[in-house]
Design a protein around this nucleic acid. Structure first.
Lengths: 167, 167
DNA sequence: CACGCTATTGCAACTTGTTGCAGTAAGGAT
DNA sequence: ATCCTTACTGCAACAAGTTGCAATAGCGTG
């Protein structure tokens, strides 16, 4: 079935370049070299995306990034942007998760790995530090042998304001 | 921007029928009446989807449901299925979250609210009971005032087998 | 049982991503 | 400076959903 192969695409990809995560100088300065050091190539399209990402600070959706790249370089194609985002993610420069609606949300330069608390009522997206989730994740590992990825964790619910409100 | 309005669609919808959640007899038997009791209508299309859901037990994706409905009634249209799924979700008969790839995954008759542990390597999807997450969620509420929805919680990482493996 | 209100449906168009493929172009080697 | 290998790019087609809108049909009333 096609749905299957579609679904696996991104996951399989994770293996090819591996290593990622740990290292990562947390800055856009050396990207060009870091990309090349992997045997990958530095192209104008990638430079454009990095330029856009460098100007970004919080959370951005994939389509927003495509739009911003087009502002700089109108010839930008979505497939290239999404594929490059995948490469940058493997380099540890960005990470992504899915919003309430399943749409991709990218986290630029994740200074510290973190999860998200997403309010289903107002859409607010608070950060959840790794330490806040630590106890929970440790328990998961101890009891179930499940090693969770904090930076891909998002919890939905109601933020303080919405939970308190009359609604 | 269109992305905005698109994103809000599902959230806003949550308000119209409200109440949901708490009650819910956890059985497909009374659906027809329960739907009507809400001032909603019982249609052949809905009957078809419920028939499909009743035969289902674990987790299913939206497109799989559309396909199964088409097996029974070839004239089925995606929009109707997805809209009906939304209605059933508000009745508490199903719930949905997003898989690793952001695709929708529906949980039929959630006997007990539960979250998911999704393995990014092998794709396994283990259930996480509400009690397993209780301490964590309570902390979240106490410290941050954030009221989380267990049944929409999914944690990604590596399952015991994959975490242990050579990979 | 016909009537009317309005919840639903189906269609068509659109959004967000993904993918196979053939052509293009980095960048190391000569 | 030129060649060669092969990592990218762009295109076109497709998958999964979502949405606006006009037509249809539940179902409570009279």
């Amino acid at each position: 079935m096609t749905a299957r192969s579609l679904a696996e695409g991104r996951h399989e990809a994770g293996r090819s370049l591996a290593t990622s995560h740990e290292a990562s100088a947390k800055s856009w300065d050396g990207v060009e070299d870091r990309v090349r050091a992997r045997g990958l190539r530095w192209t104008p399209q990638r430079a454009t995306l990095v330029e856009v990402l460098a100007a970004e600070k919080g959370h951005v959706t994939g389509s927003q990034l495509v739009a911003r790249c087009r502002d700089i370089e109108p010839a930008t194609t979505p497939s290239t942007v999404y594929r490059t985002l995948g490469v940058l993610e493997e380099l540890g420069l960005i990470s992504h998760s899915h919003g309430l609606d399943g749409r991709e949300v990218f986290h630029v330069l994740p200074a510290t790995a973190h999860g998200h608390l997403i309010c289903g009522a107002c859409g607010a997206d608070e950060e959840l530090s790794a330490s806040d989730a630590a106890v929970f994740l440790d328990t998961l590992r101890r009891d179930r042998g499940f090693v969770a990825e904090v930076d891909h964790l998002s919890v939905t619910g109601r933020c303080r304001a919405c939970a308190a409100g009359p609604r």
